[in-house]
Amino acid sequence: MVWIVVAVLGLGATVAQVGIVFFTYRDYQVPGVAMNPTLKPGGSALVRAREGDEVHRGDVVMFDRGAFAHPDSAGLSVFRVVAVGGDVVACCTGGLLTVDGKPITENYLSQDQYAQDAAATTPYLVRLHEGQVFLLGDERGRARDSRFLGVVPVSAVTGFVVGTGRITHPAPLARTTAFTDAGLPGAPFEDTLYPALRWWLLGGAVLLFAGLIGLVVTLVRTAGRRRRAAAGPPGR
């Protein structure tokens, strides 16, 4: 009975953790180059459901593309948040993006041949109202983002990109400090759930395996004792 209880607990823990992973996270196939090099075109990204979490500058987020002020298409997309409600975002001072007059050193940007394209340094000055976010691609020379399509309501943000690769074995996405280094409050979203779930899943699997092995060993030993008892004492 002890080994049965251990196996059942392990199975329950494993099923519960798998359920949480697949209800909280999703794979996203990166369709184009707009977020290169952070997200490679054709690659996979791990997205965690937002569930009411606050959105900060530097977050790479999933959102409904149809929510742009001047949308050019519909469907899910991913971009980086560079400004939030109440910010004034502008380009470019000394070649740098500024938020509330603070220059931002964006070390996550693409440095390929499109980095100095005219589209990458298109001038703009936007003041955001509360509840709005300004979204840009990391490949500025080839991204159709808030510079051209307008702001996005934060309510349209459905998830945070927290890793690259498949949901079964993702690599963590590096969190930028570009905005906090410039003196702006609010660090990007940090996902602590997935690493914890992996350990809980491992623990559940270990319990399940130990319970099954213990149960098999116990049954084999019990069967052996019964056979010996049935055979009776050796004859004379």
Rank of each mutant, 00 (worst) to 15 (best):
Q116S: 06
A34M: 12
S44P: 03
T105L: 12
G183H: 01
T158H: 11
D100Q: 15
Y114N: 07
A13E: 03
A229D: 15
A67W: 03
E130C: 11
M35E: 11
L125M: 12
C91K: 03
T222W: 05
E139N: 12
S73Q: 14
P234Y: 11
V21M: 09
H169S: 13
E139D: 06
Q29K: 14
G75N: 08
Y124N: 03
A34R: 02
A231F: 01
S146Q: 05
N36T: 14
Q116V: 01
L76N: 13
V99T: 08
N36A: 12
W3R: 01
V6P: 05
A171G: 09
R144S: 08
V220D: 07
A119I: 01
G12H: 12
D87Q: 09
G232P: 04
L46A: 05
Y124F: 15
R57F: 01
P233Y: 10
G159V: 02
R147T: 14
C91Y: 02
N36W: 12
G235D: 15
R48C: 02
N107L: 07
V206D: 02
V60S: 07
Q29C: 01
V18I: 08
Q17L: 03
F68A: 06
P195H: 04
L76W: 03
L193K: 01
G183K: 03
Q17G: 03
A196K: 04
C92I: 05
P172A: 14
D145L: 08
S77T: 06
T180L: 05
D53L: 09
D191F: 12
Y108Q: 04
V5C: 09
R147Q: 03
V33Q: 13
T121F: 00
D53Q: 06
A34C: 14
A174V: 15
F189C: 10
R147Y: 05
V88A: 02
L128Q: 01
A156K: 04
F68P: 11
V8A: 11
A115L: 05
P37A: 09
R166I: 07
G85K: 02
G86Q: 08
G232L: 06
D112L: 00
A34T: 13
N36Y: 14
Q111W: 06
G150P: 08
R48K: 14
L149S: 13
D72A: 10
V84Q: 10
H129M: 11
D138G: 13
G235I: 05
T177L: 00
P123H: 13
V162F: 04
V33S: 10
T192P: 02
A174M: 11
G43H: 01
D117I: 00
S77K: 00
P234M: 01
L135I: 09
V162P: 02
L208E: 06
A16D: 11
L39V: 12
M1I: 05
A171N: 07
L135M: 13
R228H: 08
V33C: 04
A187R: 12
Y25Q: 10
